[in-house]
Design a binder for these strands. Structure first.
Length: 126
DNA sequence: GCATTGACGAAGG
DNA sequence: CCCTTCGCCAATG
């Protein structure tokens, strides 16, 4: 076979290409209902990589150039804190978007986070 | 090729 | 209760 051994690496290096882990994260995030939020750990657990919640965050880094747009503002850390607000266009973009969706944010933390929490493994489970 | 960092999370002191 | 350390995996320096 003329096909040389091609290695599947650097999923984020090619945002226009589809790669499992990143696309999977985006798919879950896009399914988050309006007015709800979820955590990195919940997504990671749903994907079976709960020990690698960091990778979810890393995937979200590519969400900015993912199409269609990924509502990354609905993803916060397990504390309900807008840990990623610093990565948005503006520092207030994230909480503004959430506020429009009916999610109150106080001091960079989602108010009543526990009640608005949306667990993919629980509600989206296939 | 090794060391550091990162949008996390759980555990330990 | 607050702070530190470890684990996880990939990217970057």
């Amino acid at each position: 076979m003329p096909a040389p051994a091609k290695k599947n690496i650097t999923p984020i290096a090619a945002p226009e290409k589809k790669y499992s882990f990143f696309e999977d994260v985006y798919a879950v995030v896009r399914q988050i209902p309006k007015g709800r939020v979820t955590s990195f750990g919940a997504i990671a657990a749903y994907l079976g990589t709960k020990l690698s919640a960091r990778m979810v965050g890393w995937a979200m880094n590519g969400a900015h150039h993912a199409r269609p747009k990924v509502p990354a503002q609905r993803v916060v850390n397990r504390n309900g804190m807008l840990s990623g607000k610093n990565h948005f266009k503006t520092a207030t973009e994230m909480e503004e978007l959430l506020k429009k969706e009916g999610v109150r944010v106080k001091n960079d933390v989602v108010v009543d986070f526990k009640n608005k929490f949306w667990d993919p493994a629980l509600e989206l489970k296939l």
